[in-house]
Measured scan of single mutants.
Amino acid sequence: MDPFVVLVLCLSCLLLLSIWRQSSGRGKLPPGPTPLPVIGNILQIDIKDVSKSLTNLSKIYGPVFTLYFGLERMVVLHGYEVVKEALIDLGEEFSGRGHFPLAERANRGFGIVFSNGKRWKEIRRFSLMTLRNFGMGKRSIEDRVQEEARCLVEELRKTKASPCDPTFILGCAPCNVICSIIFQKRFDYKDQQFLNLMEKLNENIRIVSTPWIQICNNFPTIIDYFPGTHNKLLKNLAFMESDILEKVKEHQESMDINNPRDFIDCFLIKMEKEKQNQQSEFTIENLVITAADLLGAGTETTSTTLRYALLLLLKHPEVTAKVQEEIERVIGRNRSPCMQDRGHMPYTDAVVHEVQRYIDLIPTSLPHAVTCDVKFRNYLIPKGTTILTSLTSVLHDNKEFPNPEMFDPRHFLDEGGNFKKSNYFMPFSAGKRICVGEGLARMELFLFLTFILQNFNLKSLIDPKDLDTTPVVNGFASVPPFYQLCFIPV
């Protein structure tokens, strides 16, 4: 058959498939802009700032609406009420993970971030239990974070109060905490193996944040037939998995079943207990991918939040002064901060919360999916439909947070200066898919920041009023603009 005829037939089939998918069930789905064949609503979305586009569309179609990214149908949730109703009140029905062709290629359905069903539930339950087990290797997770915080302070001392970009050092600290939990080992910041790991993690975040990856996920045929950065992403992930597998083999040879040292040991012990169960989800494949998931999810998000926190503290020296006064009063100079201190430091706690609220790190979270046909607000959402959640619409709700575009710790303080919780605080998402490392991340943010401010004054290279804190939105995360500062020993 003539190649031209084959091409026309293929394009015609794709067009018909697109029209059929977009028209099927439209009477039951939430409203939304009319999609174009094949490309859907992509032309109506700013790929570099999806969150802003969703906010604009919500003003037209309401808090629940339908979009098509290519052939992929998505239902968008915008605003606290619908997000709570879906992710919390109907948590089980909305607990699936959205379709990610690239991740599915890399992870093969294993791990904790992109798995679904029984596998996801069992691996998540085990990971939560293990991360909360403060007795691994007779050292609590808090001990590990405190140790890394001391190392971080010593690295900052080496800058000798000269101007520096904190990106690298602030990236090393949370990565080392995860390494300590998974591998029972922290690395020197100049260790070549550690630097290679950091390089792969950072490069992957840069790649994932590009519009090209959005295109690959919406048109998965590209993955096999086109060159691009997605190939580098898959190569980096394969490198990390190979490295983790080597460490798993080392653990198998040296493990003491009665004295687990780290996450890998705990997983291997669980595998041993379930070795007679042919349906067990505790396999080497799941261990390797879960460890890679924890490394990827637990490094860049925390380091970016820390980097943004220091920029905001530079911009608002009056806030920094209040935090340091609270540190001096509650902790002093002669001991290290600990998590028990947080309950006695409402202002510092409010500042950490406000940093996370203000920066809105992951504006749309990772997409969910419905696990069955769901009736939601008089609409029928078919099983498997991807759910896109606007966390921006919750964290920047102007009824809950007056002047949401302003950095103001009073958003989390009552009139008496006591810490005030808010149900709208969802930087880790909400419901059954809430970030498994939430507790660890909150511990790291509090301890790293208090250790830094206990030991250093922060000095800006320019007038604080002239510092730009506008986030650089890159399609996946909101990151701070480049800046330098000086760490002046107190």
Rank of each mutant, 00 (worst) to 15 (best):
Y189K: 04
K52D: 06
K375N: 13
F219Q: 04
V8A: 13
L485V: 14
P480R: 05
D46N: 15
T389N: 03
E92L: 08
V352D: 00
S365M: 04
C175R: 03
P471R: 10
T348R: 01
G298A: 14
S460T: 14
S51D: 05
F428M: 04
M136Q: 15
R206S: 10
D397A: 05
K275P: 09
V177A: 06
L14H: 01
K232W: 06
S127N: 05
C164G: 05
K138D: 10
S365K: 03
H251Y: 01
P367C: 06
R157F: 13
T55A: 14
R433P: 02
I123W: 02
L413S: 03
Q340T: 14
L90P: 03
Q252C: 09
P30F: 03
N423G: 11
D262N: 06
I205C: 08
L16K: 01
I123D: 01
F412R: 00
I60T: 14
E199K: 15
E274W: 05
T301A: 14
Y68A: 07
G111Q: 02
P163I: 13
V8S: 11
L485P: 02
D293R: 04
L90R: 14
V83Q: 04
I359G: 07
R124H: 03
E250M: 12
L128E: 15
A291P: 00
K190P: 06
L15P: 01
K465V: 10
G416E: 15
R144M: 14
N217L: 09
V208D: 05
P30C: 03
A86Q: 02
D224N: 08
L9W: 15
N231C: 12
E354D: 02
G298C: 08
T210G: 13
E438C: 02
T371V: 10
K270D: 05
K121I: 09
F187C: 08
Y347R: 01
F187Q: 06
I327K: 00
T469P: 10
R329L: 12
M406S: 11
R342N: 06
D341E: 03
N418F: 09
H99I: 09
G437W: 04
A161N: 11
P427M: 02
F219E: 04
L485Q: 02
N474S: 12
P174Q: 07
K399C: 12
Q279C: 13
S422L: 03
L314D: 02
I331M: 07
A238M: 13
I223G: 06
D191R: 04
E155F: 13
F183W: 06
L413D: 00
D265K: 02
I462R: 10
E326V: 01
E415Y: 06
C172K: 11
A106R: 08
T66N: 01
S429K: 01
G96P: 06
E253A: 11
P382G: 04
Y61H: 09
A106S: 14
I178E: 02
I387V: 08
T159R: 06
L195H: 14
M74I: 15
E444D: 03
P471C: 10
D466T: 11
R132M: 14
S58L: 00
C164P: 01
Y483D: 01
I47W: 15
L245S: 12
R73H: 07
F226E: 03
E154P: 02
N204R: 04
H230N: 05
M129E: 15
Y379L: 05
P317T: 10
E274S: 09
V479G: 11
K160V: 10
C10N: 00
P317Y: 03
P363D: 02
F4A: 12
T299D: 02
F487L: 07
L237P: 04
F183Y: 04
Y225C: 11
E246L: 14
E93T: 12
G431S: 02
L152Q: 01
F69Q: 06
T283A: 05
T299G: 10
F187E: 04
N418G: 09
T302S: 06
Y424G: 05
S140V: 06
C266H: 15
A86E: 02
F126A: 03
F407M: 03
G109P: 04
F134T: 14
D165K: 03
P480F: 03
N286R: 04
K121C: 09
V319H: 10
G98N: 08
I434W: 06
F194P: 03
P427Q: 02
G109T: 09
D143V: 08
Y358Q: 05
D414I: 05
C179W: 12
P427W: 01
Y358N: 05
N41Y: 00
S162H: 13
K421E: 10
N403P: 02
G439R: 11
S365T: 05
H344N: 15
V323F: 04
N196I: 11
K322C: 08
L67N: 00
I269M: 11
L311M: 11
E104M: 11
R442P: 06
A238T: 03
P367R: 06
L388A: 04
L170N: 01
S336L: 12
E415S: 11
Q278P: 15
T389Y: 08
G332A: 02
K432I: 07
I19V: 11
E154R: 11
T229D: 12
H251Q: 02
V83L: 14
P317E: 09
G117S: 07
V208G: 12
S162P: 01
Q193A: 13
T167Q: 12
E400M: 07
F134Q: 15
D265A: 03
I39K: 03
D408V: 03
I207V: 07
Y347H: 03
P166A: 07
D165L: 02
T159F: 10
S115T: 14
F69Y: 13
I60G: 05
M345K: 00
A173T: 04
L361W: 01
F69V: 13
Q484S: 12
K190H: 11
V248D: 00
F226S: 08
S24V: 11
F100V: 10
H230L: 06
S53V: 03
I257E: 12
V394C: 15
T304A: 12
F263Q: 00
E400L: 04
I257G: 11
I257W: 10
T55P: 04
L395R: 02
P163F: 14
L195M: 04
F282A: 04
V374S: 05
F425V: 03
P367K: 07
L395M: 05
L71I: 10
L461Y: 12
D243P: 05
I331F: 03
Y424S: 02
K232T: 13
E241M: 11
D224L: 05
P227Q: 08
F446T: 03
Y358M: 10
P402H: 09
I222A: 09
I213Q: 09
I215A: 08
S429V: 02
E85H: 10
I169W: 10
L128R: 12
K59S: 14
P30I: 03
T364I: 15
I213D: 05
G343N: 12
L445I: 15
G62V: 01
L156R: 01
R329Y: 10
N418Y: 11
F194M: 09
I42E: 04
